[in-house]
Simulated assay, not measured.
Amino acid sequence: MEVQGKIKIIGETKTFGANGFQKRELVVTTEEQYPQHLMIEFVQDKTNLLDAFNVGEPVKVGINLRGREWQSPQGETKYFNSIAGWRIEKVGAQAPAGAPEVPPFDEYEPVQNSKNEDHDDLPF
C-alpha cells in the first residue's frame, strides 16, 4: 500500500532494549477533503531512509499495516494497529540513476499475428 501527503514531523531515531531495536516516527498529512495525520513507523535499517527528507516535502510512502493481539493479566483481549514504512520517495522525483528507461504504454507496437488468422491457437 501507499500513502501520499506532506511531511509534518520527522522524529529522532530511538533505540530500545539490550538488542538495540531502533524506531523512527514520521507523520504525513494527506491532501484530501478531510486531511489525515498518519504516524508511520520506520524500524531498524529503514530509519535512515528519512535522513534525506525535510518537513513540508510532498512524499509517497510504501507502507504495511500491522495488527497484533494482546491479552491483559486480567484476561481482557485488546487489539493494536500500526503503520510500518518500508520505502519513501519525493512526489515527482526522477527515476533513480541507473534505472532502465521504460517507454510510455502508447509507444509499444501491438503484436501482429504472423499467419493473419482470425482464430486463436488455444487447444480448448
Results as ranks from 00 to 15, higher is better:
Val61Asp: 09
Thr47Gly: 00
Val61Ile: 09
Pro35Asp: 03
Leu38Cys: 02
Asn48Arg: 14
Glu32Asp: 13
Met39Ser: 14
Asn54Asp: 14
Val55Met: 03
Glu32Arg: 14
Pro35Val: 00
His37Cys: 00
His37Tyr: 09
Arg66Tyr: 11
Asn64Glu: 10
Val61Ser: 08
Pro73Thr: 08
Gly75Glu: 07
Gly75Leu: 00
Asp45Val: 05
Asn48Val: 13
Asn54Gly: 09
Pro73Asp: 10
Lys60His: 03
Asn48Thr: 13
Gly75Ser: 10
Gln36Leu: 05
Asn48His: 13
Pro58Ser: 09
Trp70Glu: 04
Val59Gln: 09
Asn64His: 15
Gln74Thr: 06
Ile63Pro: 11
Ile40Ser: 02
Phe53Trp: 07
Gly67Val: 05
Gln71Lys: 12
Gly67Trp: 10
Gln71Thr: 13
Glu32Thr: 10
Val43Gln: 03
Asp45Tyr: 05
Tyr34Asp: 03
Leu49Cys: 12
Lys46Phe: 08
Ile40Asp: 07
Pro58Asp: 07
Val43Arg: 00
Gly56Met: 08
Val55Ala: 08
Glu41Met: 12
Gln36Trp: 00
Asn54Trp: 02
Asp51Gly: 04
Asn64Tyr: 13
Gln36Lys: 12
Pro58Lys: 14
Gln33Tyr: 04
Pro73Gln: 06
Thr47Pro: 08
Arg68Ile: 01
Gly75Lys: 09
Lys60Tyr: 02
Gly62Gln: 12
Val59Ile: 11
Asp45Gly: 04
Val55Lys: 15
Tyr34Leu: 11
Asn64Met: 13
Gly67Thr: 11
